[in-house]
Each structure stands twice: as C-alpha cells, then as structure tokens.
Amino acid sequence: MPTIGVLALQGDFREHCQRLRSIGVATREVRLPVHLDGLDGLVLPGGESTTIARLLQRFGLQEPLRERARAGFPLWGTCAGAILLGDAVPGLDRAPLGLLPIMVERNAYGRQIDSFETDLDVPALGAKPFHAVFIRAPRIASVGSGVEVLARHEGDPVIVRRGPLLATTFHPELTSDVRLHDYFMTECVGPAESAAKALPTLAGGSH
C-alpha cells in the first residue's frame, strides 16, 4: 500500500489525511525532512502560504522537496499548497518551491466575504460536476509549457497538472467527494511508482 505524506506545518492537513485514508491510502504528517523518507508522494494542504513558506525554510524542507521533485516525486498542492508549488508568486516574501511553471496571484478573488463555492466541470473526473470550495483563493494567472489545464472557473485555470505534479486553487479536502484524491493516486502516484520499480532494470539493475 502506498504511503502519502501530508505537509503538516500549518493548515488543514487533518482533512487531507482523512480523505486519503477513506480511499485506503496510508498517510504520514510531515514536519521535518526526515519524515519524507519512504513516501510515495506528498500533499501540500490549504493554510496560510506566508506561514508555511517560513516554516518550510526554517526547518530545511525546501531543498529536500526540490531534489525529490526533480526525481519525479508526486506532489499535489491545494490553495496555499498550489501557491508554494508555483514558480512565480508576486508579493510572496519568501521564494516558493518553484516546481510547477505557473504564475499564481494570492487572494485574487478579494477578501473572505468574497470566498465562494461553486460546481466545476472536470472532464477528467467524469460527467458529474465537482463541487469546489474557494477560500481567499489564489488565481493561476498563466501556465508554462507542458502544464495541462483540467478545469477552469470563469476562464481561469483551477486544476492544473504536469506529470506527477498537481495543483488546485480550491479545497477538495473540505468536501466528501474524493475523486480528486483518487485522481492524484491513480494518475500521479501510480505512474511514478511503476517508473521507480522499472528504474533499476533500465539503469542496468545494480541490485
């Protein structure tokens, strides 16, 4: 059974753990680099991006995450997590992880009174709309090469993916619909696992 880490520096990591466990995935809370050992993927939850960015830096998680991402490690960021995955975030006073070529504008829909919920058409998840909760949400202003847009709200990308990296500007962990958690496991984590298993053979098999 795969084990997925959930970054637990700050934010709604408990909800991501619950959703993942409900679909039979083992989870681990990640607060320090050592907690990353042996994981098959990592979720960066919603929370306050300035807070999480500082704690990532203070506890030395940025470089280990960048190294793993270069080796094809699956990562999924929701809201604040999507901000941190981005490579251009105007106004964020710490460097984001810069793993996904997207420009993300923070609090782009206004203040809390403008936070909203709505249904999204997500063809990759089937015909049934996905109910999405946007809390002081960021906006993906532009996407770079190789980034696939899986859903839009009023023209703006709200689910994007490049290989094993997934980003959503809303909070699928706040609703009981687990289709995006399933999608992350089958489309991002699954292929990465197969590739990792195939690697020793391709490389000549040292063990």
Binding site: A8, L9, Q10, G11, D12, F13, R14, E15, G46, G47, E48, T51, C79, A80, Q112, I113, D114, S115, F116, E117, T118, D119, L120, P129, V133, F134, I135, R136, H153, H171, L174, T175
Partner: peptide, 22 residues
C-alpha cells in the same frame, strides 16, 4: 454555474485553513 458566498462551509472553511497556526 451558481456561485455562493457567505455559506457556513465557506465561513468555517477559513477557520480550517488557520489550524495549526497562531
């Protein structure tokens, strides 16, 4: 698509995002 603001999900949702914080 219908867009709703000020729902209890959206209101309590921000508190969920503040968890683990100061």
């Amino acid at each position: 698509m219908v867009v709703e603001t000020g729902t209890i999900t959206v209101k309590s949702g921000l508190a969920e995002m503040l968890k683990g914080g100061v």
